[in-house]
């Protein structure tokens, strides 16, 4: 089998990752994230008009009704309208807005949803979300260090942080709203990217033990080549369903699907380049893998 020289391009890959990380970091610092209602608190009303909605007219109605800061946008179709009030409003505004809109429109205004989130809830959620992410990374690192080896754990976590930061950066650059479902998607990205990285690491470990005369770069190239088919096929099937979800899942699940699509794409790249690269930088060698794990020895017995 022809071994692809992945690691020959490792300098380029590092540069590519650094550029992406810098852009993401800069955007997160300057633009920050467009936090959704779940995190900022405030009131959101989604209504369905029986005829095409006149956004400007609705804005005027809102201004006239004393909601000067309201954001009025169409949501999915030209009959669905989303109105957002920034934080500081009370929990009774939703129903009041609905009545105001119905009064100023001859046809039917149908309530789709009202959401009110108090400011303190939002703050806590942000804290919890960050905590969940750190906890996930920490536990995963422990598990890999236990099952594989410390350097693999560092490699995996570097890859995960890489994926999460770039996905966050994507949301920041595109100005897409970051809500609870996107946070869930991000945690799913951690799970997915990890899955990929572990499959590759598993093969690297196996080959380090199997191939006697080869330097680390070669071993990693062989392992990556061997797993490439699987990596691409799994990413493809996952992307297929995610695209189906993004196209047919409706507006409420759109951010979730987009976050996962970006995350899976980046995760596929990082499992090939970032984790393996990190291993090389840390100087992984045969000795790292020979002594410890007992399961490894049993696996070797299965070789033909």
């Amino acid at each position: 089998m022809k071994v692809i020289n992945f690691m020959g391009q490792r300098k380029l890959a590092i540069l590519f990752s650094l550029v992406l990380l810098t852009v993401a970091g800069a955007s997160l610092a300057i633009n920050q994230l467009k936090w959704g209602l779940d995190f900022t608190g405030g009131t959101l009303v989604e209504v369905h008009y029986s005829e095409t909605a006149d956004l400007n007219g609705i804005r005027e109605t809102m201004d006239g009704g004393g909601y000067a800061g309201a954001v009025v946008v169409s949501f999915g179709t030209d009959r669905d309208v989303l109105i957002r009030l920034p934080e500081g409003y009370s929990d009774s505004e939703g129903a009041a807005i609905l009545a105001l809109l119905q009064d100023s429109f001859a046809g039917d205004v149908e309530l789709r949803r009202i959401e009110f989130v108090g400011p303190q809830v939002g703050d806590e959620l942000r804290e919890q979300g960050g905590l969940a992410m750190l906890l996930a990374l920490g536990l995963v690192m422990l598990y890999i260090a236990f099952r594989f080896q410390f350097k693999f754990a560092v490699g995996a976590v570097v890859a995960l942080v890489h994926d999460v930061v770039i996905t966050l950066g994507f949301f920041s650059v595109m100005g897409m709203e970051f809500d609870l479902t996107v946070l869930a998607a991000l945690l799913a990205v951690i799970g997915y990217s990890l899955n990929d990285t572990i499959v590759v690491s598993d093969r690297i470990r196996e080959n380090f033990r199997k191939i006697r005369k080869a330097d680390p770069v070669e071993v990693i190239n062989i392992s990556l080549t061997e797993t490439l088919g699987r990596t691409l096929v799994t990413s493809l099937t996952t992307l297929l369903v995610l695209i189906a979800l993004a196209l047919f899942g409706g507006e409420m699940i759109n951010g979730f699907a987009i976050a996962l699509i970006v995350g899976v794409a980046i995760g596929t790249y990082s499992s090939i380049y970032v984790a393996a690269n990190a291993l090389l930088i840390m100087g992984v060698s045969k000795e790292d893998l020979m002594i410890p794990v007992k399961e490894g020895a049993e696996q070797e017995d299965l070789m033909p």
Binding site: I144, A188, G191
Partner: peptide, 15 residues
Amino acid sequence: ANLTTLIVAIILYAV
């Protein structure tokens, strides 16, 4: 691979 994903899912459930 699945056990690590499961860890993440359990954290998601917990928080």
